Simulated assay, not measured.
Amino acid sequence: MPQTTTTRSLSAAISLAILAGCAPLPVGPDVTKLLSPNTIMPVDMKPPSNIPGMCWGHIPGPQITQIVSDIIIATPAQIGPNGEELSPAIYREVTRPQTFNEGEGRWFTRTCDADMTPDFVMTLQRALSVRGVYRGDINGVLDQRTLRAVHKYQTPQGLDSAVLSLSAARQLGLIAVEIEPAEASDT
């Protein structure tokens, strides 16, 4: 069986397992190629941590805020020396907003911290500047302005995060794209 057919079959099997959430993610050299750079998986599937050079980012699920009520003791009960209650406790209801995560979110492949050198960040800033989303100094510092530009670049692509994904890094031309060599024909 040709290599591309094997890779496609393995890719399809892993994709189905990830989508179904019913199988652990196998780890090996073929899987490493398939996970990068566009892998996005639900948070309940922990990403494999034993793949060298692969780092993960997390997008939390949407948050909702609800008003919750608590009953607190405003004045504690007064107890006499014999243990009898002199005056009962006074309670009151307190309402407050509380934020909950509606969903668990999802994981995505990202650039590793070790790769975010000043030279890499300068190249990132230039690439974002050319695309009109960064308007700051090209200084190699991963500051708030740069992070906002990364977020602005990735959001239309469905990734609401300021963490640079591998997919975005490749689209920006910051990371080489691996191309499989063409198979030699037998004739």
Rank of each mutant, 00 (worst) to 15 (best):
V68E: 15
V31L: 13
M116K: 14
T4K: 08
T111V: 15
L35I: 10
Q157M: 10
V27I: 14
V43S: 14
T32A: 15
L19P: 00
N139R: 06
D137C: 05
Q3G: 04
N50C: 02
I179T: 15
V94L: 14
S185A: 11
G61M: 03
A20R: 12
A168L: 00
I72A: 11
T155A: 13
V31M: 12
N101Q: 12
K46F: 07
P81I: 12
H58K: 13
L35K: 00
S9R: 11
A168W: 02
R131T: 01
V163A: 12
M45L: 15
T117A: 04
P97E: 15
A114K: 10
G140D: 10
L86C: 03
L86I: 15
V68C: 05
S185T: 10
T123L: 11
D137Q: 13
L34A: 14
V150N: 08
P47H: 04
Q144T: 15
F120M: 14
D44G: 07
W107M: 02
M122V: 01
S185G: 13
Y134V: 01
I59N: 05
E183W: 02
L16R: 06
A114N: 05
A182P: 03
T7H: 13
Q157I: 00
E178C: 01
P88V: 07
F100H: 07
P29A: 14
E93W: 04
K33V: 02
A12L: 05
L86V: 14
V43F: 12
D186L: 13
D137V: 07
F120R: 09
P47Y: 04
G80V: 02
S87G: 04
V141Q: 10
V163H: 10
P2S: 14
P76A: 15
P81Y: 06
M45H: 05
R170D: 02
D186H: 09
L19V: 07
R96T: 08
T32Y: 04
A169V: 01
